[in-house]
Structure formats: structure tokens, C-alpha cells
Design a binder for these strands. Structure first.
Lengths: 236, 236
DNA sequence: AAACAGGCGATTGTGTGCAATCAGATGGCA
DNA sequence: TGCCATCTGATTGCACACAATCGCCTGTTT
């Protein structure tokens, strides 16, 4: 019965609850079911996912490390509310990294990959045309996922993890300072980038990516720093 | 006695033991007092820093998130031993990011800042000329700190945190795959970069930085992947 | 003699309890 | 009536205890 024991040992669902909780909370934050500044009490998170405070705490600390959650000593955890300065830094970072990622990814993109990206864009536009908060959330997530899909094709896990962080924090920033409805202008730009990639015009793709990121940032209203953090304090 | 209460409340030393433990372990890893693959038992870490396993565990999880520690379920935490592939990804990331950081930092560097960097380089070369493991460790740390000092002048905390991670992981990589003594060739290159910056020749500085990173990577022996991870398994 | 099953020590995974701390409520005092 | 000190409920910080799991060792069987 040696072999059998080895086989039945694998129980992936129980394998790491902590990771699935992390992902669930992360998703809730980045598609804005949890507003910036919202309190994340350990006990509440724990009961919600049916684990003890120990694991809830561990998850919150992880999220704090990637900048999605802010932990104040003796006060607890809150969904992060990036300052305008932080917002600028996030977009500066993206402007620095994403063109580089694009250059590497372009070399490795196959026709199949591009096809998959196009399918993704179709879903994105479908969400864009729908109404309702659910579609909005799906659109936000899909928009970020486009960037992540591109990044994943660069074959650099280190950079991909960083991009994951940047995209997630961007979502928070847009939730806080976004003016128009989401990054609705962004969708066409995604398509344009993909067109350039398909035409093997890498430099053009990079240029479009830079413009795209800058457009997203330009759609923000980063002036009202004090006002929003005040309002945020009230919400908390 | 209202004001007095507020004042005596501040006890920075007790404020965050967890952070100081993290820093201590981190330093021990990046200046190679702890070899890649070394076991980091929770109880051992706890008693060493005189805290319970709870905090020790929390620290190990943090370090795992930034890639310095690998945690295997039900087996424990080990100092990470990056694969050659990971090593390449780290250096690719640095090649992508550091020139960009340099460009931003160059705009903000004052004469005073450059002076401070030169002083740092002097220390670096002092360590280089000394013998013994202590000097070696100091040299390794100082070499990484040069890059981090430059990065800090870019005024982007998000990128700085990422650079912190990259530099730390680079140290691990060099420990595993380094051929010659440390990055001894690197020191002169640091000086050359600083010269270019002082001459306000940013493009030259970026070029030198790229070459510098590539030189470090070229000094590694990334072929012997299987051999080393096997030896590593034995060491563990 | 070789190999496998089962037990054992050690280490991690997770829940819970207690002390410390904070925010808001309450009551006394000017 | 307004303000400040104090009290109280709730929440976090941390340690500890117990359960689960793993690797190793040993004894037995073929």
C-alpha cells in the first residue's frame, strides 16, 4: 500500500486555504467590491472565510506587503488608499517597465498568443457595452488582465510578480481618483497595441503603451489629495 | 497629565520588533552569513531573537514574499537558492529598471548627493583591500547599497522597494553561482558611473550601468544548474 | 539480506486565550 | 452648558497549546 498512500495524499483544496483566501480578498479589492479605506477586521475576515484569526491575520499581512492593505499598529487593517504621490509613482513605474516587457514579449509572441489576446479583448468590449456594477467590475479586471497577459509572455516571473502588484495598485488608484467611467478609453488602445504587435512593429507598440498609461493617468484627478483622504477617513 | 501620557507612549524599540528581526535576518542572508539552502526553523529563529514562533513565522513569511526565503509546506523555511533561470530573470529585470532609475535620479542629483556617493565608494574600496570574511561581507553589502543609494534618489518608493528585492536576490545569486571573488571588478565600474553622472552625461551613465550589470552576470557560472541544486540538497 | 510497514521524535499548521491598546461613551467639574 | 478625565467594549499583539504531518529509525517478514 505504499504507492496508494502517496497518491491519496494529494488534496489540493485543503493544500493552501491561506492562498485562496488571499486571492479572494485581493480580487475583492482590485475590482472594488471593497472600497479604499474599508476596515478589514481580523475576526470578520476570519469568520467570513471560516478560519481563525491567525490565518486571517497572515493573509492581511501578505496583502499589506504588496501594498493593497495598510496595517496600522493596534488599529487594524484597511484597504489601502494610495496618496496622489503614490499614484504617480505607480504609473511612473509602469511607464518604465511595461515597454521593456513589451519588447521582450514581442519576440516570443506566437500567432496563437495574439489570437488569445484578441479573444480577451472581445470579452473586454463585451463588458464595456453592458451596464451594471457586475459588468463594470469584470471590465476593470479584464482591463488589468490584458496588461498581465502581455507581461506573462515576457517569460520573466520576477517582473510578472511586480507587474501584478502594479496593476493591482493601479486599480486602487483609479477607484480613488478616477474621473470618467473606468478606463473606458483604454479599450481601443489595447486593440491598437495588439495591432502593432501583430504587425511586428514593436517600437510602435511600445509608444502606444506609453501613451496608454499616460492616458489612464491623465484621466485621474490627483489634485484633490487632502479632500479625498479626509473623505476617506470619514468612510473608514 | 494628558500630554505626558502621549509623550511617554513612544517606545520605538518595542514598537516593531518584527521589523528589526526581519532586517536582521535579511542582512544575514544577503551578506551570506546564512548560505542558500540553510534551514530556518521557526523555533530556532524565535529563540534566537527571543520571540515566540508566531512572530518568527510572520517574519519568515515576509521574507518568502520577497523571494529570499522558500517555504515548503509542512517542511519549513529555507534560505532561497535561486535557479539559474531565476538568476537570469533577476538580472534581466535589473537591466530593464536600473537605467530608467538612473535617468530620473540624474535629474535630481545635487553636488552634495554625488559627494555622499563618492564617500560611499571610498568605503567600498577600503573593504575591497581588506582581507577576511568580515570585510568581504561588508564589501558585498556596500556594493549593493551603491545601487540602492542611486535608486533612492529617483524619489520613487515603489521602484525602490522593488530594487531592494532585486539587489537582495542578486546577492543570493552571486553567493550561489559567483566565480571570482565577489563583484570585485564592480567597484571601478561604480566609480565610472558616478563620473559620468558628475559630468552630466546621463546616457553614458546608463550605458555603463548596463555594462556593469552584464559584467556581474557574466562573472557567474549559470551552467551547472543540476549540480549545484543537488549539492544544495545535501547541504540542506 | 533486503525491503517494507509501523512507530517515534521533531517540526509545522492552526486555533484559542490573555494582556495591551484604542475609540467611543459616560459622568463629573468648571 | 461645554469640556475633560475616566471607564468600558471591542480589537489587535503575542504567546502558547494541541493537532497534523513529515522524515527517520527500527523491527519484522519474505
Amino acid at each position: 500500500m505504499n504507492v496508494v498512500e502517496k497518491l491519496e495524499a494529494a488534496d489540493p483544496s485543503q493544500e493552501d486555504r491561506t492562498q485562496s483566501i488571499r486571492d479572494a480578498l485581493r480580487d475583492a479589492i482590485i475590482d472594488r467590491r471593497l472600497a479604499p479605506g474599508a476596515k478589514l477586521a481580523e475576526h470578520e475576515v476570519g469568520t467570513l472565510f471560516d478560519v481563525s484569526r491567525t490565518l486571517a491575520r497572515s493573509v492581511l499581512q501578505m496583502l499589506a506587503y504588496e501594498g493593497l492593505v495598510r496595517i496600522e499598529r493596534n488599529r487594524g487593517a484597511f484597504v489601502a488608499s494610495p496618496t496622489p504621490e503614490e499614484a504617480r509613482q505607480v504609473f511612473d513605474s509602469r511607464r518604465l517597465i511595461e515597454p521593456g516587457i513589451l519588447r521582450t514579449a514581442a519576440e516570443r509572441l506566437t500567432a496563437v498568443d495574439i489570437k488569445a489576446l484578441r479573444v480577451h479583448l472581445q470579452q473586454e468590449s463585451r463588458f464595456m457595452n453592458e451596464r451594471g456594477p457586475t459588468a463594470r467590475r469584470a471590465e476593470i479586471k479584464a482591463s488589468g488582465d490584458f496588461h498581465l497577459m502581455l507581461a506573462s509572455h515576457a517569460g520573466n516571473a520576477v517582473l510578472l510578480k511586480f507587474m501584478d502588484e502594479l496593476v493591482a495598485r493601479s486599480s486602487l488608484v483609479i477607484a480613488l481618483y478616477g474621473r470618467s467611467g473606468v478606463s473606458s478609453c483604454g479599450h481601443n488602445e489595447h486593440a491598437a497595441i495588439l495591432d502593432a504587435l501583430e504587425a511586428a512593429d514593436v517600437e510602435q507598440a511600445c509608444l502606444l503603451m506609453l501613451k496608454h498609461i499616460t492616458h489612464i493617468e491623465a484621466d485621474l484627478d490627483l489634485r484633490i489629495s487632502e479632500g479625498l483622504s479626509l473623505k476617506d477617513a470619514l468612510v473608514t
